[in-house]
Design a protein around this nucleic acid. Structure first.
Lengths: 228, 228
DNA sequence: ATTCAAATTTAGACAAATCTAAAAATAAAG
DNA sequence: CTTTATTTTTAGATTTGTCTAAATTTGAAT
């Protein structure tokens, strides 16, 4: 809960890795793998983070995050994903290219910078990969429904909303008619690129990219028999 | 001329400092002051940079940049000033707040990032402080005239152009009538904040902030006797 | 239970960048 | 042309993050 006293880039990277892998704990080797280093180095770092109260650590037993560790990790992930949105939406990078750059940008320390970046990007809730962006207070956006990319073929659903407030996305969804309240059925997932084909009540079909599907929140329906 | 093999952030900071202070050479103490360190550390670093061929160094005689050192320094300064423009124009930071943040952002290594950032900002030639931004090829924009902030009181001049292509600046200059070809005399420089008071032929006066003055390029005129 | 393999930790070394304190070179003053 | 003051360099230590190699601990298998 205490303000996460300035961490080095390396410390932040380890924290992110523990956050990503600890359920609830993660071993030294797996952690070392994730941060591209050796187990012995990971041990050293873990012990430093334990002294700072960010991870709970027991020799030979692995590590997990403490509550303040979780807060600190969320802050790093927030910075990372906001930069990803910037790189993709403003600079036009492909969503597969943004990760490595964000990896560097995320370590620039300035709460004010992040506040303004967030505002500049219209406070997005999801990054270009569809992953949620922690809020400034450390809480996580919980989908008001299920993301369309997690719905199985054959499932019917009602559109609940958009994961993002960007004009581009909202315009697009409005233009193709995927507005809140409308009902659809997922008829196909193209294996090659994850494109979703959905169909409405009147039989009209529509193709949505995997990326778009991650930004559409839906409410799954009871499956209906075709002749009901 | 050779691609400036990846430098550490610290090396880049020393390079910038040498660039800023060497005319043509700079002593160890002054350099150490600039990068906030001690003379002994500066000596170490200088010797590293000399081994990499970026500075020419002679013991007890100070350092200067080599041609490839100048290219490398220009690249760092380009990154720094582009980020300053981004912070001021896109995120709304004041022009006095942008330096420290740019100091961190400038070290993110990615030519493609800088290319796209440059395009996103409409390839500016000057940063928010009015300092020129080196071009991608390492050349420097030379003012098509003299910057208004370098004109002495009493001098008459014709407006030659704007240092920047941003709509805000062009709109502003157009609105106040400082368009290319018009003639003015600088009647006062307010000591407190550097505001310039200028007067046109019909006696109308206009106040320009020091910042605006840095972005206006002018052609100085022969001084005229009042009753000519 | 004992043995063995895998995972983890320690010990010792190294590179980058820094510091303090002491030595060396230069420049300035008498 | 000495002496002194200033600047610069070296020497040795420190911190962060890393490594290799050796020592421990754990857990799984006989």
């Amino acid at each position: 809960m205490n303000a996460p006293a300035l961490l080095t880039s390396t410390e932040e990277n380890y924290l992110k890795a523990v956050f990503a892998l600890a359920q609830p704990r993660i071993g030294t080797n797996a952690l070392a793998d994730r941060v591209q280093t050796k187990a012995s180095s990971a041990t050293d770092m873990i012990q430093r983070l334990a002294e700072k109260g960010l991870v709970e650590y027991e020799r030979y037993r692995g590590v997990g995050l403490t509550p303040s560790g979780r807060v600190a990790a969320a802050a790093v992930i927030r910075r990372h994903r906001l930069w990803e949105v910037f790189l993709a939406e403003k600079l036009g990078f492909g969503w597969h290219e943004v990760h490595d750059l964000a990896e560097e940008l995320e370590h620039v320390q300035s709460p004010e910078l992040i506040r303004r970046l967030d505002a500049f990007l219209d406070t997005p809730s999801y990054d270009p990969h569809g992953d949620p962006i922690p809020r400034a207070d450390g809480t996580w956006p919980t989908a008001a429904g299920v993301r369309l990319d997690q719905v199985p073929v054959g499932q019917s659903f009602a559109v609940a909303g958009a994961a993002d407030r960007t004009d581009e996305l909202l315009d697009y969804l409005h233009r193709v008619g995927m507005v809140p309240g409308t009902e659809w059925t997922l008829v196909e997932i193209v294996p090659f690129d994850g494109t979703r084909t959905v169909q409405n009540r009147s039989g009209r079909t529509l193709d949505l990219s995997a990326l778009a599907a991650r930004h559409v929140l839906v409410q799954p329906q009871e499956t209906q028999t075709p002749n009901a």
